[in-house]
């Protein structure tokens, strides 16, 4: 059982909940950038939470089904078509042997998730099927999908058709976002003006944004003068190479803040001034180029409450689709 890749889309990868415990040797978590949407896709087709799905960036693939299957597409507004006939997003539907799944133009968001009943059956690497392309690991030979690839599916255990995620639980994709951050790490290196600029600018996402990092443009941040500490390097934004938190925001040379996502480089010599809170990482993952973003400062308590609210949304969805 499986699916043949007729057209791979632009940067389609196999992802799951991620790979944990290896960041200390430079292997980042990887996994779906929008975890809620990929969780929803699996629930819709009756898969276990850890099943692997396809993450499609901006442009959907074209897939030929060589056996009947139940499919769900969630995440970005990337309208699915079966044999060129529109099918709903956020709802499971059946496809038959010989059917072709393709997609219309993306209208909002950035990444769509396709779950197949049975889940994608590729070998686990260090406990995950997620593709980490920089390290040539996971997925299909550690790379993005290519034309002609065969995607094997696992055995189906109780798939379901016609299940839908209630409107209220679907994420929205506004073109202006507010992303909550906790200031910290090396933010003391910013001047008061630099800090105000960081929190007061409508940052625009650049087209180079990818699974490693989301680079924004819009202003230049002012750093305090200093004598470089031994080993740090001469630029005011340099530090002795340090670990980078997932979600941390570094500002090389004071321009173009970069939010690291789930394929993060694990460390380096640029000073980070803030970190996106865990609950808002999915929203970063759904940001397409040119979107404007404000970084909004919150404290630890607010961030933890947001995390609990997010967990509650996962639990509610599980109940709704039980």
């Amino acid at each position: 059982m499986g699916v043949r890749v007729l057209k791979p889309g632009m940067s389609t990868t196999i992802q799951d909940r991620g790979r944990y415990g290896y960041y200390s040797v430079g292997i980042p978590p990887s996994g779906s950038l929008d975890q809620f949407s990929s969780f929803a896709a699996n629930l819709l087709v009756g898969n276990p939470d850890e099943a692997a799905v396809l993450e499609c960036t901006y442009l959907g693939p074209q897939l030929l089904f060589e056996a009947p299957c139940v499919v769900a597409v969630t995440g970005a507004d990337l309208p699915p078509l079966v044999n060129r006939v529109p099918r709903p997003l956020w709802e499971s539907f059946e496809v038959s042997e010989g059917d072709v799944l393709s997609f219309d133009y993306l209208t909002a968001g950035a990444r769509a998730y396709i779950a197949f009943s049975g889940g994608i059956d590729v070998p686990e690497v260090l406990g995950s099927r997620s593709t980490y392309t920089l390290g040539s690991m996971g997925g299909i030979n550690g790379r993005v999908l290519a034309e002609g690839d065969w995607i094997a599916l696992g055995p189906v255990d109780g798939s379901r058709v016609g299940r839908a995620v209630p409107e209220a639980l679907r994420p929205t994709h506004p073109y202006q976002r507010e992303i909550r951050v906790m200031m910290g790490l090396f933010d003391h290196r910013l001047t008061a003006t630099g800090r105000e600029t960081f929190l007061g600018t409508d940052w625009r996402l650049t087209p180079v944004a990818d699974r490693t990092g989301f680079r924004y443009q819009g202003a230049e941040l002012e750093f305090k003068d200093r004598t470089p500490p031994f080993g740090a390097g001469s630029d005011p934004s340099n530090i002795v190479d340090a670990p980078y938190p997932i979600g941390s925001i570094q500002v090389p040379s004071g321009i173009e803040p970069i939010v690291l996502h789930r394929d993060a480089v694990s460390g380096g010599g640029y000073c980070m001034v803030a970190t996106v809170i865990g609950a808002d990482m999915d929203d970063v993952g759904q940001s397409p180029p040119n979107i404007t973003t404000r970084f909004v400062e919150v404290d630890l308590e607010t961030a933890l409450q947001a995390r609990r609210d997010r967990e509650a949304r996962f639990a509610r969805l599980r109940e709704e689709l039980a």
Binding site: A242, P245, A279, L300, A303, L304
Partner: peptide, 11 residues
């Protein structure tokens, strides 16, 4: 320093 709500960074 906290790196978001899920990292502690210690210099």
């Amino acid at each position: 320093s906290f790196g978001g709500d899920d990292h502690v960074f210690v210099e």
